[in-house]
Simulated scan of single mutants.
Amino acid sequence: MKIIKSHFVLNREQRSGILLLVLLICVCLAVTYFRDFSQKIPENDPKMAVFQAKIDSIKALKTADTIPKIYPFNPNFISDYKGYVLGLSLKQIDKLHQFRETDQWINSTADFKKVTGVSDSLLAVISPYFKFPDWVVNAQAKKPFTGNKKKSTAQKNDINTASVEDLLLVKELNEELAIRIVNYRKRLGGFLEDNQLFDVYGLPSAVVFKIKDEFTVQTRPEITPINVNEANASDLSTISFITFDIAREIINYRELHEGINDLDELLKIEGINAYKLERIKLYLSSSQK
Rank of each mutant, 00 (worst) to 15 (best):
I25H: 08
Q218E: 08
N76M: 06
E101C: 11
T224M: 11
Q155R: 01
S205K: 14
D262R: 15
F73E: 06
L282E: 01
A233W: 03
S285F: 01
L123V: 09
V170Y: 01
G202S: 15
R15A: 11
V182C: 14
D245G: 14
E214Y: 00
L173H: 03
W135Y: 15
V170A: 03
T243I: 02
V22W: 00
L86Y: 01
I260N: 02
A274I: 11
D166K: 03
V208L: 06
N183P: 00
S89L: 08
T32Q: 11
F241E: 12
I3N: 10
L21I: 06
S38F: 08
I18A: 07
E249V: 00
S6R: 11
D264R: 13
V170T: 05
S57A: 15
Q104N: 12
K268R: 10
L86Q: 02
D158Y: 00
Q288F: 01
P133M: 07
R220M: 15
F112S: 05
D245Y: 09
L21T: 07
V9H: 09
R100D: 09
I93G: 02
V170W: 00
Q98K: 11
I78G: 02
Y253E: 13
Q98T: 08
P68S: 08
I242T: 09
Q218D: 02
I280Y: 09
S286I: 05
F241M: 13
F37D: 09
I25M: 00
P75D: 08
T161Q: 04
I4G: 05
D166H: 07
V115D: 03
V136P: 05
V208A: 05
K91E: 15
T109P: 01
S285D: 10
K62D: 13
G147E: 02
I25F: 07
L168I: 07
I246M: 03
T224A: 07
R15T: 00
T238N: 12
L61E: 12
Q52L: 08
Y81W: 03
A206C: 00
L168S: 10
V118A: 01
L29M: 13
L90Q: 15
A49Y: 15
N273W: 00
K281F: 00
L197F: 01
D111I: 01
Q92I: 04
K95V: 09
D199Q: 12
A53S: 15
D103N: 14
P42R: 13
K5G: 00
Y84S: 11
L19I: 14
L256R: 14
I126W: 03
L168P: 06
P204C: 04
F99Y: 15
F99A: 08
I25Q: 02
L188V: 13
Q155S: 06
D94G: 07
S16M: 14
S57R: 08
I179Y: 13
S285Q: 14
